[in-house]
Nucleic acid binder design. Structure first.
Lengths: 228, 228
DNA sequence: ATTTTATGATTGAACGGTCAGTCAAATGTA
DNA sequence: TACATTTGACTGACCGTTCAATCATAAAAT
């Protein structure tokens, strides 16, 4: 079925071009995406090690060998997936780059987290899994660093995202402190808040009982109410 | 060689036992524990699939083959570990079997969670990993059910523990509701509380930066303060 | 005290299966 | 024809598992 889609794409791009140039590149890119999508689903569901290249290929409607035309190795494929998603998710949270969060923006921020979790569920499943194996995590970080030439960021993508979020929130909670009395420990409250978000993310992302979305939305609103 | 065969034949004639002492059983049990300990550490650090029997055996100071004298398979070893720890942890939380939690007991309960996380860090690392792979989780549940003859519990150990905790807490939060006004949604607050605990557990258990214990203890106290 | 013997513990080479990765050939495509 | 894409049989390494053989020890026999 994926195979058919792929053929269609080729047909569409079948202009009179004598040159196999930029169009070709686009087809290639589309297929790359297809493979990554298939791989992500398998990695997320069964884990990295339990997933075989053959399964990924079959699901993507291509042969095993072709995989290696697009990615040099299974590990490279994994890293590429993670790197790409991280980059993409980065965009979502670039809005508050001034570092100042209003209450409204804070609310938006939390909702944005929820939307992102929902939209990229599989990716977060994979990410959680990755972050729980020190061996793999180290490998990832090490390799992110070697890829970093691509972006102008000097720190590794995974923790960079975490850091940016942390910084913005830290400022927000500090400002709350100024408003509130002396008793209020902003760092501590921030940490508790992060635990809550983490726990929520974990629960949401790995929830299989096809819970109501409404249930989770209520939780999101409660969290906002508690911490805004 | 031939010599050996003769021995075997004699063996068949089946004299009564010049057998070793019953204490042998204790040594056996000790070695079983040793293997399980070694396996747990590897599983926790590198994940189930990335861990080889050879590694476990080498770390335990025994040969690969001997592993199979104590456990029928790698998977059985995993299940045995999880089952044992679950059973053990059960004990810790059996105190409030009456289902009624006072504020003091609630405080104790949270502290107990923290102590358990600390004491059985590796196990919780493994457990978190397991719970994130649907494939493995299903296998586990299915097999727990087949082992259940051992204990008089009719539901599987992992979720049973979860359920018991949930029930006790649910009652506690409901009672809070009665005290507080109408605005208070006990179920919702309970869920948020659980997210927080989960997030805290996740952070604590996979923390590698050798954070101060003091830091986490402060968090524990804050959580108590927020939810008691 | 010494030797014999039975038995469980232990070893590691070997087996069978799996899987990441390769490559020569086939199949388009211009 | 020339060039690119795609395939899937194949390879070599690895790993869970097995098993024939050895070791260690305690009781029995001498």
């Amino acid at each position: 079925m994926y195979h058919k889609i792929q053929k269609t794409i080729i047909c569409i791009t079948d202009y009179m071009t004598p040159r196999t140039s930029i169009q070709l590149e686009k087809i290639r890119e589309a297929k790359r995406s297809l493979i990554m999508q298939s791989a992500l689903e398998h990695f997320a569901k069964n884990g990295y090690y339990a997933t075989t290249i053959s399964h990924i290929a079959k699901h993507a409607g291509i042969s095993k060998g072709l995989m290696y035309n697009y990615f040099p190795s299974k590990e490279a494929l994994l890293k590429e997936i993670i790197y790409n998603y991280i980059q993409e998710i980065y965009q979502y949270f670039d809005i508050n780059r001034d570092g100042y969060l209003t209450e409204e923006e804070f609310e938006y921020f939390i909702h944005q987290i929820y939307r992102t979790l929902k939209e990229k569920k599989s990716f977060f499943q994979l990410l959680f899994q990755m972050m729980m194996q020190s061996e793999v995590r180290l490998k990832l970080i090490e390799l992110q660093k070697s890829i970093e030439t691509l972006a102008a960021r000097s720190d590794d993508s995974i923790t960079a995202l975490e850091k940016q979020i942390y910084k913005t929130l830290s400022d927000y909670f500090k400002r709350k402190k100024e408003k509130a009395g002396q008793e209020y420990d902003s760092d501590l409250e921030l940490n508790i808040f992060i635990y809550t978000i983490k726990g929520f993310a974990l629960t949401y992302v790995f929830n299989e009982t096809e819970f109501d979305e409404e249930y989770f939305e209520k939780s999101v609103n409660k969290i906002i109410e508690l911490y805004k």
